[in-house]
Design a protein around this nucleic acid. Structure first.
Lengths: 167, 167
DNA sequence: GGAATATCGTCAAGTATCTTGACTATATGG
DNA sequence: CCATATAGTCAAGATACTTGACGATATTCC
């Protein structure tokens, strides 16, 4: 068999960006597989990214667009798909004739519940793998990183209040 | 302007998957913007993901397919694009009439160099933001997470040796 | 009140990425 | 030689996202 030349000599990346990307993809793959296995065949990563910005009590489509870091057209297309799947529904905003309110259907809420459960299972697996201490350090670093983004210092409120759920 | 109703009440996600996703996207966005600003207009996240699997001395296309977690067709299409951009080139494998060798052009190597520089700059920014201690903890946790995947426990080698570079 | 302007959402077309399936060419093992 | 496996390609379709143009309602200013 071939042997010489480039058999070894392949130092794969080991910087923050790469590690974050790999870890993120691994999580998403695991989560999506579990969601589909739980019967939510409509689930996809892009859709999950959007749903993460929709609180359980719904939101206005325009507010959603502000939070998701994409164009309004991208958001709309994802919403179209989710609405067609029966996960969400759009209602006219009674206070603004132009606006629409987005909210979950019972099917959507079911999916959120399953998602919460799966999320906790994956998290437990992570803790088993690397230990509670490291896991806590990971979360703390990620939160600190996020808190220190664009907007001012805002050193407060990175407390770990009861915001433990949502999805 | 509108005011009451759902102005607050939106606890955004705060679990590992979400945090990893957000952090990963933030990094990629920052990196891609810097790469384009540095004159590498052909740069994209998908392409970066593939390039990360191509060592500086090149590789065989088949070996690349094994490492990247996608289909050979997806890899090929990305390679087609990168070759068309002049970043990579494909040569016939002298030891296997079926195979092709993939390697960087000088343009590609230039991009790698810029990428290394930008990567370090971003990392420095992160350290400024959250401190060296937290940053080190973040990297250690991410490495441990990766080490403890599919393959056995393998509790060794999560040392933080000098593998600080590559790309 | 009414026109200018801004905001909310939609429609339509194009690009990038990734998937599946079918196919050619070369290698390998009997 | 023949059967099978491997390396790569070709083609078609799905998903996610982008840009540009547009209609409808709100808001602002006169």
């Amino acid at each position: 068999m071939v042997k010489e030349l480039d058999e070894k000599s392949e130092p794969l990346p080991d910087h923050v960006g790469w590690r974050l990307w790999q870890a993120s993809r691994a999580w998403q793959t695991e989560f999506a597989a579990a969601m589909r296995a739980a019967g939510h065949a409509w689930f996809s990563e892009a859709r999950a990214g959007l749903l993460g910005h929709i609180p359980r009590n719904g939101t206005r489509q325009s507010a959603l667009i502000e939070r998701a870091a994409t164009s309004k057209q991208a958001v709309q297309q994802l919403l179209d798909g989710l609405e067609a799947e029966g996960v969400l529904e759009r209602l006219p905003d009674p206070r603004d004739g132009r606006g629409k309110l987005v909210r979950y259907t019972s099917k959507g809420l079911d999916a959120l519940r399953d998602g919460d459960r799966i999320k906790l299972e994956i998290e437990r697996g992570y803790i088993d793998r690397i230990g509670e201490r490291r896991f806590a350090a990971l979360m703390e670093a990620l939160r600190a990183l996020d808190a220190g983004r664009g907007d001012e210092p805002e050193k407060a409120t990175h407390s770990r209040d009861e915001t433990a759920e949502s999805k």
